[in-house]
Structure formats: structure tokens, C-alpha cells
């Protein structure tokens, strides 16, 4: 369980990133923070592994304030996936995945063997293990980033716009892969994105943020779509977009779902 207790972050120059943000992320659930730039979503994420220290309030993991924990040890206990993969360009794929186990004292040989297993787990060919990150595609690099985050089998995964820099088709593949992994692993995930569709697809719970980390609405994806709290959320999730306004039309005795432009998107099954 991760708790944000009225955390704030004001930078020395007076810039406010986050103001009085409170949230409980239950264990084994994935919570998506979604908002545009300036919403403080990445800042909130980085407070969990102490890459950013709050200027007010506290962040606690299983009841223990992270400020009291050794930052290096804390970070090694949390899986972290970054937008551009954040892989070390001078290490092979296997060594990148094995980073945290090796830092924790696992023998390199064993860590590499386990890394090869993880490579398959995230849907990559083990032969890629000896390559350097620059030899992989963007989507492959992101998969390696996910494998690295899983290498020490952490309870918590922090994902900072992990699929933001890849093309839409690959992004969709990566999202499906993550959903499949999460169904297996049941990690506690905080996922940050500016993409509403991604949030609705991946979150058990979605938190829509305004500027400075003010919560506009939180709920399950269905709740957010069914009843947007206000115009901001309605606008942000695109509740009025044609592809979200589905109606049902009878065709040959079947119920066909049709979007706002009249284009059929699927068939309802009773």
C-alpha cells in the first residue's frame, strides 16, 4: 500500500508542482495518474522513490514514511520504468536487466541467467540479450526497461510515461503485454500518463489530475466514463468525442454498437 498524505512540492524559485495531494494506492492494484503537463504527475511518482523530496506532507509505503528510508535501498526495492527506457547505453541488454540484482550482490553469472528468463517473459527473443540498447527498436527498449524493473521481483512498480515515445501500434502491444504481466504478477503499480485511452485501458483505478496535482476525479475507468465529475474531466476524457458516444442499432436481429459518426464499432453479446 502506498499512501500520499497531503504532499506538496514547491521548488526554491517558488514554482509549485504539487499542492496538498492525498491518495491511497492499495496493494496489488494498478492506479493510473493521468493529466496534462503541469499536473505534477511525474513529480508525485518520483516522490515514492525519493527522486523528488516533498516540501510538505509525507509518502508512506505500508505505513512507513519513505523519508526515513535509505534512498538507495528504497530505489532498489522498487521497480522503475522510464519514458525512454533509461537503459545504460554501454551495457548489454542482459546486464541492463541484471542491474539491480548485481547491485544487491547477486553473482553476475546467475543474474544474467535470470535476466535471460525475464527477456522471454516480456516477449523478447533471448538472442537480443547480448546486444546494446542502441541496437534495439524503441518498443524493444521499453520491454527491456520493464524486464529490468521486474528483475529484483519488487512489490511496487513505478511507471513514468513508459510507452509515451513509441508509435501507437507498438504502444498498444506494450499495453497488452503489461496487462498480461500484471494479471500474472499482481504488483502494486503507479502508472503515469497523459494518454486517457492508456489510462482507461491499464488502470484498476484512474486518477484525473488538474494543475498542481489537484484531483479532478478518481474512480474505475467505467465510473469515469459513465459520470465525469465536471466539465474538466468530461473534456479531458473526451466524453463527448464521437468514438465515445455509442448507440445501439438493430441489424439482422443483432445489436450493433455504433459511434457518434455512425460507424459500427462492434456487436453486443447478450
Amino acid at each position: 500500500m502506498i499512501e500520499f498524505e497531503s504532499v506538496s512540492k514547491t521548488y526554491p524559485d517558488g514554482t509549485v508542482a504539487v499542492e496538498e495531494f492525498s491518495l491511497v494506492v492499495p496493494s496489488h492494484r494498478s492506479v493510473v495518474l493521468v493529466g496534462s503537463s503541469g499536473s505534477g504527475k511525474s513529480t508525485l511518482l518520483q516522490m515514492v522513490n525519493r527522486m523528488v523530496e516533498p516540501t510538505g506532507g509525507r509518502v508512506a509505503i505500508d505505513g512507513e514514511d519513505v523519508a526515513g528510508r535509505d534512498a538507495v535501498g528504497l530505489r532498489r526495492s522498487i521497480g522503475y520504468v522510464l519514458q525512454h527506457g533509461g537503459l545504460l547505453p554501454h551495457r548489454t541488454v542482459l546486464d541492463n536487466i541484471a542491474t539491480v540484482p548485481v547491485l544487491n550482490g547477486t553473482r553476475r553469472r546467475r543474474a544474467r541467467t535470470e535476466a535471460a528468463g525475464l527477456l522471454e517473459r516480456v516477449g523478447l527473443d533471448p538472442s537480443l540479450g547480448r546486444r546494446y540498447p542502441s541496437q534495439l527498436s524503441g518498443g524493444q527498449q521499453q520491454r527491456v526497461g520493464v524486464a529490468r524493473a521486474l528483475a529484483s521481483d519488487p512489490n511496487i512498480l513505478l511507471m513514468d510515461e513508459p510507452f509515451g515515445a513509441v508509435d501507437p501500434i507498438v504502444r498498444r502491444e506494450l499495453q497488452d503485454e503489461l496487462a498480461r504481466l500484471q494479471a500474472d504478477l499482481g504488483k502494486t503499480i503507479i502508472f503515469v500518463t497523459h494518454d486517457v485511452d492508456e489510462a482507461l485501458r491499464l488502470g484498476d483505478e484512474v486518477v484525473v489530475l488538474r494543475r498542481h496535482g489537484v484531483i479532478a476525479q478518481r474512480g474505475t475507468p467505467a465510473e469515469i466514463l459513465a459520470s465525469p465529475a465536471d466539465d474538466f474531466v468530461r473534456d479531458f476524457v473526451g466524453a463527448d468525442r464521437e468514438e465515445r458516444r455509442l448507440t445501439v442499432r438493430k441489424v439482422d436481429g443483432r445489436d450493433v454498437a455504433v459511434d457518434g459518426t455512425g460507424r459500427p464499432v462492434g456487436v453486443l453479446h447478450p
Binding site: Q46, N49, G73, R75, Y80
Partner: peptide, 8 residues
């Protein structure tokens, strides 16, 4: 930063 964030 990425190296720091994963625990170096």
C-alpha cells in the same frame, strides 16, 4: 538520473 532512480 535513470541509473540513480533504479538504485545506483
Amino acid at each position: 538520473d535513470a541509473a540513480l532512480a533504479v538504485g545506483h
